[in-house]
């Protein structure tokens, strides 16, 4: 279990423009932090800063584990998989195992893969080629590949995008369940306020250069949400959806 996961006062400039401004928050083990915000607000950039791919110009990201180096699992936004390539789901998930130089799988590796596939409900897809799976199935397999490393921190970048509402709900529910059961600190980026408010313990609302962290209710009741989804410009259906989120029904 991680001892500390703390983002402290980070500043990130992209192309000379300040994207993240003194951003600070912390995440507890087993906590799911939903991240919402308009396109270009710096949500994916924040995940890359946590991964260490982008260095912040100021501030630190501290992730410490009680007795080992913390492991981060990341499910990126876009995935280029050649559908013609004969790589089976089982094999694809095994790619995520932490060892690098041993080309074969041990009994222990096989047990870990089997357990992860059961957790993510992908056991029945084991022998299927990854390219032939549906969008929802693929997302569960990508999640399994990140989980097979036994991560302490899980970063999901719009993993429910391009899925139908039922598959989105299933995916978010699965992530929430795993986060709590396995004590994984999880950051979940989505544009779906309904999903984020239903499954996240807290929400980080990010706009370019500004942020707010709080409970889903606090964020949804905040006037900033109108700015986020630019309700003055969208149609009545979107307005109704947000009103429903705010007041129930």
């Amino acid at each position: 279990m991680i001892k500390k996961f703390c983002v402290d006062q980070i500043d990130v400039y992209i192309n000379g423009e300040k994207l993240l401004d003194h951003l600070s928050f912390s995440v507890q083990p087993g906590e799911m932090l939903g991240i919402i915000g308009p396109n270009g607000a710096g949500k994916s950039t924040l995940l890359k800063v946590i991964l260490g791919v982008i260095k912040p110009q100021h501030g630190t990201v501290e992730i410490t584990h009680n007795d080992r180096r913390p492991v981060i699992g990341y499910v990126p936004q876009a995935r280029a998989i050649d559908e013609e390539m004969p790589i089976q789901t089982w094999d694809f998930i095994s790619l995520g195992l932490p060892h690098r130089l041993r080309p074969w799988l041990t009994k222990r590796d096989r047990a870990v893969i089997k357990e992860t596939m059961e957790l993510t409900d992908t056991s029945h897809l084991a022998k299927q080629p990854i390219g032939k799976l549906s969008g929802g199935e693929k997302q569960r397999v990508f999640l399994a590949q990140a989980l097979v490393r036994n991560p302490d921190v899980l970063l999901l970048d719009e993993s429910t995008a391009n899925l139908d509402p039922k598959a989105q709900e299933e995916m978010a529910s699965l992530v929430h369940e795993l986060c709590v059961q396995q004590n994984i600190s999880t950051l979940f980026i989505s544009h779906d306020i309904h999903l984020v408010s239903k499954y996240s313990h807290r929400v980080l609302y990010l706009t370019r250069g500004h942020y707010t962290v709080g409970s889903a209710e606090e964020i949804i009741d905040n006037a900033n949400l109108d700015v986020l989804y630019q309700l003055q410009h969208v149609n009545g259906m979107a307005q109704t959806a947000v009103e429903t989120m705010r007041y129930g029904g």
């Binding site: 998989i81 790619l95 590949q145």
Partner: peptide, 23 residues
């Protein structure tokens, strides 16, 4: 090729995943 098989397979068949896993 055998020694680097796993890393090469990861990067060849799932380049985004390989980068995300810190390869």
């Amino acid at each position: 090729l055998t020694l680097g098989y796993k890393m090469l397979k990861f990067d060849s068949f799932d380049p985004v995943g390989a980068e995300a896993a810190g390869l």
